[in-house]
């Protein structure tokens, strides 16, 4: 068990580091310029174009690198924004009583009623398709799901006797939240957050695949997949590479999450 954790964590961390390196590299250097369409159309992979070219003759390696950068950017911003909002709302509402509790529950119900895709469609209908509205929509989705999960977890912990004991011995709600509730629910939340990071990249890809994310001159991985769907039979690399990249990103985030959880979870630590 322990051995397996080490190598999966190592692989995850390595792939993640690669993604970060590619994202940073794409800021200063790409094999071709973004709008260089000098290549042959739908060329197969070659030494000049490692992943081949698209229907307009643009280098797919260049576009895939930029796609990775966009995915990382969306993941980071959306998780930070959504996580902060979601966790604080979740814990606060887990402690709320009486009509405050009801208010929190109904507010959460309303927000959760808008899955990311739905929020995104609403935002796109009013703000137009852009990377910003995609990030905003995804982080709202993350916030809603984290708030709900944190709230459920908090409520379950708060219902336990040791919280009552802490309350009787005079602990303030804030100190109980930080000292007793957060340490117990933290591993589950952190695991969820890292899952969300990868899923944010996926969500952005879905949105731009539908034409609701970053508009076409952008090379998001979803745009690449959407553009290559028609021609996937002639030039399969265009459909396969972005898909593999997305899977690698999400998987590496999962591995990292599992590693962190196995390190931090008090229950798991006691066993090993």
């Amino acid at each position: 068990m322990k051995k397996r954790f080490k190598w999966s964590f190592l692989i995850g961390a390595t792939v993640l580091a690669l993604f970060i390196a590619i994202a940073v590299l794409s800021l200063i250097w790409t094999p071709y310029s973004i709008d260089d369409s000098s290549g042959e159309r739908l060329a197969p992979p070659s030494s000049a174009h490692l992943f081949g070219t698209d229907t307009l003759g643009r280098d797919l390696l260049t576009r895939a690198m930029i796609g990775c950068r966009i995915a990382m950017q969306v993941g980071l911003l959306a998780t930070l924004l959504g996580g902060l909002l979601g966790i604080s709302l979740g814990i606060a509402s887990g402690f709320a009583r009486k009509y405050l509790d009801g208010l929190a529950a109904s507010t959460l119900d309303i927000v959760i009623a808008f899955p990311t895709l739905l929020i995104a469609m609403l935002l796109v209908a009013s703000m137009g398709a852009s990377l910003q509205s995609a990030i905003l929509a995804i982080s709202l989705g993350i916030a809603a799901s984290l708030a709900r999960i944190t709230r459920t977890l908090t409520k379950r912990v708060v219902a336990l006797d040791f919280i009552t004991a802490a309350q009787i011995s005079g602990g303030s709600t804030l100190s109980i939240a930080f000292k007793h509730v957060l340490p117990n629910i933290w591993p589950a939340i952190l695991a969820n957050l890292s899952l969300q990071f990868g899923l944010a990249g996926l969500a952005e890809a879905s949105l731009s695949y539908l034409g609701l994310g970053a508009p076409p001159p952008h090379a998001s991985l979803g745009n690449l997949l959407q553009e290559s769907q028609e021609t996937a039979f002639i030039a399969p690399a265009g459909a396969i590479v972005p898909g593999i990249l997305l899977i690698a990103l999400v998987l590496s985030m999962n591995f990292v999450a599992d590693g962190i959880r196995e390190r931090l979870d008090p229950l798991l630590a006691r066993k090993s």
Partner: peptide, 22 residues
Amino acid sequence: SQLGSAVPAFWVGIILIQSFAI
């Protein structure tokens, strides 16, 4: 299940169309 939850749904669709429709 880890692999499955990392795969974009529309990509699975594209691959399935490729393999079982075309």
